[in-house]
Design a binder for these strands. Sequence first.
DNA 1: CAGCCAGTTGACCGATCGGTCAAGTGGACC
DNA 2: GGTCCACTTGACCGATCGGTCAACTGGCTG
Lengths: 201, 201
Amino acid sequence: MTRTNETRDKLLQAALDLIWSSSYGSVGVDQICERAGVKKGSFYHFFPSKEDLALAAFEEHWQRDIQPESDRIFAPEVAPLDRVALWCDAIYAEQKQLFDAHGHVPGCPFACIGSEMGTQSERLRRKSEEMLERGVFQLERTLRDAQRDGSLTVVDPAARARLLYTLVMGAMVQAKVENDPEVLRSLRGQIFDVLGVPQLA
Amino acid sequence: MTRTNETRDKLLQAALDLIWSSSYGSVGVDQICERAGVKKGSFYHFFPSKEDLALAAFEEHWQRDIQPESDRIFAPEVAPLDRVALWCDAIYAEQKQLFDAHGHVPGCPFACIGSEMGTQSERLRRKSEEMLERGVFQLERTLRDAQRDGSLTVVDPAARARLLYTLVMGAMVQAKVENDPEVLRSLRGQIFDVLGVPQLA
DNA sequence: CAGCCAGTTGACCGATCGGTCAAGTGGACC
DNA sequence: GGTCCACTTGACCGATCGGTCAACTGGCTG
């Protein structure tokens, strides 16, 4: 007997890895089980369906992987505009690393699955939407902080944050379609350009 | 016997409709055949595989649906900045119409399939990339024209066109994930904002 | 020690997957 | 009229799909 939910965790991790590096539709339950070293019966003991597993894997990915790094990047101690720069750099670094490891740019898992399954599964769509909302919110808070400390002038922080996030999502899709992480290299400059902040060396 | 390639065309249309409104992975060959009113044997008479059908359907969609409207919007007679405005409006109008018809925002088929299959099928990825390149090129030409007639000042038209296209793709992904075509309503304003063109009523 | 129960196992389900194939069908051309 | 061939048809393939189930295991608790 496992003391913790080790089996459950292994399923979540396997699901995230496989789905992120390929797609929701092309990853089977058997495949996930094999990767996790778990029999299918156990899968359905923990999750009522493949869809529920994906939902849980999204939440797990956020809490285990994204939230911690996000807390560092968007920390109050960091100057607002530095947060934006760090954020852009982190996005490039992650995609670059995954590209070097697997030979493919995986893109943003939430945008990819939302884009793939948005018209077919309302639950997956809603979850993807929620995940992206969290990102926009952090950015919006950052813009407000920048406005407050005078490092930026922005009339509508919420709209501006959405615009920047749109740009980032577009860039990630483009990087995936071109299978070239270097597309994201120019992201920081583009973001600051749109923000109207003079670009330094 | 059919005089033209009617069967082939029906397969292409059915494939485009089904894949665009759901996804590549969740549409089966049987489903496409049923929609087209064609038996599976005929399918494999015209196309060696499902992937080849999708590739051909992409090209068909461009030539039959996109190119003609694109020729109107990006016509030399239209003032460059008007082309940009018409283009944004056409994107919104199309997604809005499809949303009203099916209850879902389908997004950009090339970006969606590229995003879904980019890591699994090099051929589909390349084709998606090519399709998006065509769009960027039209936009780039438009920016050069705007530069030439003095309606716009832009230092690097190619980079600017790519940036705008990134923004549009991001907005379409967002519209699909949120299943709300109204997300694209603000597209025109955002594009002109990024271009530095004062927004009129 | 007995009994409970979360968790594990592997066999099994019908449906569907992408794809094959041999046998037609019928118009065009000689 | 005969032959050819693009095209059509429906049965069929093994593999895989998501999901079910009864039997089993073993640690914890009363």
